[in-house]
Amino acid sequence: MDIAEVSMALANVSQMAQIGTAVLSKAMETNAELGAGMVEMLDAAAMELSVNPDVGANFDMRI
């Protein structure tokens, strides 16, 4: 293997690592946004329980 091939291979590996890092960064950003949305939904549910504490607390069941 000559120096040109080694140089090209290293450049290719470096580029693939940068692409992988960018994709991972985007996935982490998306997961953070989804997590924030879930926290908002849980906060909204807690607010509903504070306004109407009896709603959804009990249910009747017959067998």
Rank of each mutant, 00 (worst) to 15 (best):
A44V: 04
D2R: 01
D60H: 12
R62W: 11
A32S: 08
V23F: 01
I3D: 15
G37L: 02
I3G: 02
D43K: 14
Q15Y: 07
A4D: 15
A57G: 05
M16W: 05
P53V: 00
A22G: 06
I63T: 13
A27P: 00
M16S: 11
F59G: 06
A32Q: 11
M16K: 10
G37C: 01
A17N: 05
V39E: 12
N52E: 08
F59M: 12
L34T: 03
K26D: 05
V23P: 00
T21L: 09
A17F: 04
D60F: 15
A22Q: 13
I63P: 01
N52A: 09
N58C: 07
E40G: 05
M8C: 08
V6Y: 08
V6S: 12
L49E: 07
A32P: 00
Q15G: 01
M38Q: 04
R62M: 06
V6Q: 14
V6I: 14
S50F: 04
A44K: 08
V23M: 03
Q15L: 08
G56Y: 00
A17G: 02
F59S: 12
F59V: 06
Q18A: 11
A44W: 01
I19R: 08
A22N: 11
A36H: 03
K26V: 03
M61K: 15
I3R: 15
P53N: 01
S25V: 00
M1W: 14
M41Q: 10
A17C: 04
V13C: 04
S25F: 01
S14V: 07
M38F: 03
V51C: 01
A17L: 12
M28Q: 09
A17D: 06
M1C: 13
A57W: 02
E5C: 05
V55S: 14
F59N: 06
D54Y: 10
L10Q: 12
A11L: 11
M28W: 06
S7H: 12
A44S: 07
N58H: 10
A11E: 14
M28Y: 06
V51W: 01
M41A: 13
V55R: 11
Q15S: 09
M16Q: 14
L42C: 05
S14M: 05
F59W: 10
I3W: 14
G56F: 00
Q18C: 03
E29L: 03
D60E: 13
L10E: 06
A32K: 09
